[in-house]
Design a protein around this nucleic acid. Structure first.
Length: 443
RNA sequence: GCCGUGUUAGCUUAGUUGGUGGAGCGGCGGACUGUUAAUCCGCAGGUCGCAGGUUCAAAUCCUGCACACGGCGCCA
């Protein structure tokens, strides 16, 4: 029952002249009453199958001719090298079995016209039919790129003796501002879906010292932008005995490793999606500069942007700032008043915190947020009070600092954002199979 | 929460100063022995988002509503 032969291998020339069996789905058909062409698709590629009525007989010929797009079929035949066929190979059909037919009353809805406008952002129709859109070439390429990004993240951390560690998804307290939490009924109480693995990772930091995860995070932001999802995949790391600069080294390291992995594993897919490989290579090969928040403010003010010291950098300002960047840049040392309690104030000047954001070029914006953590009990209590944040949900977090607190830090990386940026997608929705935003939870 | 745009066949869309809604793709039937988004002929398929209003007459003008999309704030 398992299949032995994949179309990609046939197109590579592994089966020239052989009699083989192919299993797949019908992608296109065309032909006449005497000769019928079926373009067969599987997860590895497409190949044209040619059936001649005089060779296959009337029954097989009519069965193939009546099989609609996306019917699943088993076709046997001989592999023929032929320049006229896409990919240089074709299958001369001996016999064919329709495994899963498609009813003409409900033909496959993802037509050429439905796809025509999809490249500039996906239409409502394609989002409604996401479960079927997944099998188109474009989504297949995106999903393979996504898989390589996930693999690269695990590879980077595991190669450097990080331990993969899991945190709960039901939590009692916020990491970011309280307004972005999803409430969940929980046996008569209210709990929240996690926004980040970080606080629970800090608890395990004294045990594991170097730890990471790739997991979903949830944020109830009503954002309607090309960079936001309510459920997104978050790659986070935490490292003991480390400062802001040490953490940035890993942030830069993992992002450059992802870019290099895509060049090694997915250059065909990137090219087919229209991505310029030279850009991806630039992101893999070059160091990412660091700029302090104060420098960024001065630069923006010099450009005539209306911004004052102490303001966080919103997207419109990020965009102006990164306009001339040709690689990602780290922005460091934000004002203390602009960042949450867990960021450690800079001992050299407590107006600032030891933090960093990594801003991607081409208008993709922030892909990493991280920094050094507030690690003494005294300091974390001060920071919570200063912010007006209630202590109760964070008692465990404070408790951890009573017993051998050490300097440490970490970052969170938006995996979907990285997929979007490196693949050159127009919208973050394009890189995740079933995107969730403030309006859409189906299919 | 705010600003903007839109909703016509399964899909993509045309529709002029208000006067009985057209096309391409997809589907069905037919022709065609090498097609490449095949081509050619024919057929079916429409509560013009919903509810009111103006008018002899509304897809078209007015009001309200719904939904969608784009963008902003916030962030990864």
């Amino acid at each position: 029952m398992q299949k032995d032969i994949f179309i990609g291998d046939v197109q590579s020339g592994d089966h020239d002249g052989q009699q083989i069996e192919l299993k797949g789905w019908i992608n296109r058909t065309r032909g006449s009453n005497k000769i019928w062409f079926v373009v067969l698709r599987d997860s590895t590629g497409r190949i044209q199958c040619v059936a001649k009525r005089e060779d296959v007989g009337d029954d097989t010929f009519e069965a193939l001719k009546g099989a609609l797009i996306e019917s699943s079929v088993i076709i046997t035949g001989t592999v023929n090298v032929d320049e006229r066929s896409e990919g240089g190979h074709e299958l001369v059909v001996d016999s064919a079995t329709i495994v899963g037919p498609v009813n003409p009353e409900n033909p496959f809805p993802i037509t050429e016209s439905a796809m025509a406008n999809a490249e500039g952002g996906e239409t409502e129709f394609l989002l409604d039919n996401r479960h079927l859109y997944l099998r188109t070439a474009r989504m297949t390429q995106m999903l393979k790129i996504r898989s390589s990004v996930f693999g690269a993240i695990h590879g980077y951390f595991r190669d450097r003796e990080f331990t993969e560690y899991q945190a709960p998804n039901f939590v009692a307290g916020a990491v970011e501002g309280g307004s972005t939490l999803f409430e969940v009924p929980y046996f008569g109480r209210k709990v929240y879906l996690t926004q980040s693995w970080q606080l629970y990772a800090e608890a395990a930091m004294p045990a594991l010292e170097r730890l990471y995860t790739v997991a979903p995070s949830f944020r109830a932001e009503k954002s309607r932008t090309r960079r936001h999802l309510t459920e997104f995949w978050h790659a986070e790391m935490e490292i003991a005995w480390a400062g802001n600069e040490d953490v940035m080294v890993h942030g830069e390291g993992v992002v450059r490793h992802i870019a290099q992995t895509l060049l090694d594993e997915r250059s065909d897919e990137l090219t087919e999606l229209g991505r310029d490989l030279e850009l991806v290579a630039r992101y893999a090969d070059n160091p990412y500069p660091r700029i302090r928040y104060d420098e960024a403010i001065e630069t923006l003010q010099g450009m005539g942007v209306d911004i004052e010291w102490g303001q966080d950098l919103d997207y419109s300002k990020e965009k102006v700032l990164t306009k001339d960047f040709d690689v990602p840049h780290f922005l460091t040392h934000y004002p203390r008043i602009a960042k949450p309690f867990y960021h450690r104030p800079d001992p050299d000047d407590p107006k600032y915190v030891l933090c960093h954001d990594l801003l991607a070029p081409e208008g993709y914006g922030e892909i990493i947020g991280g920094g050094e953590r507030t690690w003494s009990e005294q300091e974390i209590i001060e920071r919570l009070e200063e912010e007006g944040t209630p202590r109760e949900p964070y008692e465990f977090y404070i408790d951890v600092r009573k017993y051998g607190g050490v300097p440490h830090g970490g970052f969170g990386l938006g995996v979907d954002r990285v997929c979007s940026w490196l693949s050159g997608a127009d919208h973050i929705r394009e890189v995740i199979p079933f995107p969730r935003d403030s309006r859409r939870v189906t299919p």
